[in-house]
Design a binder for these strands. Structure first.
Lengths: 123, 123
DNA sequence: CCGAACTACTTCCGGATGCAAGTATTCCCA
DNA sequence: TGGGAATACTTGCATCCGGAAGTAGTTCGG
């Protein structure tokens, strides 16, 4: 049918980068910059597809881990590869390494100096 | 209660910049980078608040203009002022004019070279 | 002058998301 | 050590949005 939505790839990718391929749901939410509800809802289909699996914490019954399965890791590798190809196509022959670095640095500083919510423009 | 949402300000702002303070709904959608449905829905509350008014085209009965009213223009001016204060606060003492210019130029080139839809990552 | 193609707009539908409320569990201190 | 505060998570609700479908009107070729 189709591949992963970008946000699903980011979801799996974070797990792939995490030690033990596992993350608490709160931490995953933080790293993805989304709410906990979103993590809950994103996880469901990925569990059904067998890309992630739930695990409980033996010490703290509140926390639920999301852990990347073997098929999940395989899937991330493929998706990352095609995403990297896309990125390469975008930048090759149009951007120098220095320009990319500059953009990255400026964007980092910009997000750092931005307020959390600029949605409401005072009356 | 509260002020305008950012997207409502952009809506009114586009009208303010347009010749005659009026725009066809399609063109407004294009300038705001949103769908026509969104323009329809955004316009409704703004009409009720009296910031914009509908007008028909005498030549073409299909098109509906959105035109900025006098209170609307007043409101845009206020909101723009506070938005500019916010922007000034963000950049002052942290960014040089040259850095802002560089960021703007790089972002422009980036969006120009980006594909429309990168939401699906091929299987 | 007629109908097909096109255009402008609205409405309906489904997807995505955050927040608030609810549940369960753990922490901490008086 | 008992109970309020804090934490992790899920679910319900409201909002926002784009695309498909529907309506109305215009254009153009034959």
């Amino acid at each position: 049918m189709h591949g992963l939505a970008l946000r699903e790839l980011m979801f799996l990718w974070q797990l792939d980068q995490a030690p033990g391929s596992r993350l608490r749901r709160v931490d995953l939410a933080t790293r993805l910059n989304v709410s906990q509800s979103t993590v809950t809802r994103l996880a469901l289909p990925l569990e059904k597809l067998g890309f992630v699996r739930r695990e409980a914490d033996p010490r703290d019954a509140r926390v639920g881990y999301v852990v990347l399965t073997k098929p999940g890791r395989q899937r991330v590798a493929e998706a990352r590869a095609t995403l990297e190809r896309m990125a390469t196509d975008i930048f090759r022959d149009r951007w120098t390494g220095k320009e990319i670095a500059t953009l990255g640095e400026l964007l980092g500083r910009l997000t750092a100096s931005l307020p959390g919510d600029i949605d409401a423009v005072g009356s």
